[in-house]
Amino acid sequence: MIEVKNLYHDYTGKGKYAVMDVSFQIDEGEIFGFLGPSGAGKSTVQNIMTGLLKLQRGEVLYGGKKVSEIRRAFFNHIGVSFEHPNLYSKLSGLENLRYYAGLFDVPTRPPLELLELVDLREAANRKVAAYSKGMKQRLVFARALINNPGILFLDEPTASLDPVTAAKVKNIILQKRSEGATVFLTTHNMYTAEEICDRVAFLDEGSIVAMDSPRALKLKYGEQSVRVEYYENGNVKSKLYFLAREEDRRALQEIIDSKEVQTLHSQEASLEQIFIRLTGRELSA
């Protein structure tokens, strides 16, 4: 079990916290989604958890053991996929994986098998400098799996990927969970989180504003909503209205009465809508 207790982080040292009083726990074999817009503090929390950032205040415990007491051997059991691909550009994809595998003390997966897994087999011997952003993202993801980690930290693993490849990556993550791995998934993609996470936490301006399973969050905060598309000044505009709210109902009626409505769809609340409702901000912002 991973426990994060009352985590704070201040980059400036002037009391301007990027992360404020963040607490959660992740059970073994769970996929825990950390949702929030860019700059919400998601990567900061992940970096503290992986030891890349200094723990300033609070606690991070792995199986009851403090992260500050963890020694190098701990890294044999975690895999980290970074948001920004960090690879040796002068090495091929295969070389990147092969040399990285050599750093671990535990048995590692064959690099070619991993490249096959993320559809990079054909580009195995091509220099990474010639890879597209999506290819680099997949290679970074594959690298995180090389030591068969029991804990996976995935920072935006489906960013820059086409829907087919993204689906493949999500399946690999689910496969890892079925093998018993614990996954900490950082993303601003609500669909990814909704599809694969057992639980999610919404992070906004450094604080957790809600945390539960996607279903429970929908039951708790979800409201029937209506998305309306209408013409205004020659442009098609789209707006979302929650039917439980008096002011939204009035606004919707006003649109119907005064504008040329193109489409009108009622829908179940998505995680993004719940996030908007709770924070007033969009996840993709």
């Binding site: 190098r72 920004h84 960090n86 750093l103």
Partner: peptide, 14 residues
């Protein structure tokens, strides 16, 4: 420039 040190730091490399 490649940012590979961050990846190295989450291995037992040292």
């Amino acid at each position: 420039a490649d940012g590979v040190n961050r990846a190295y730091r989450v291995t037992p490399g040292g």
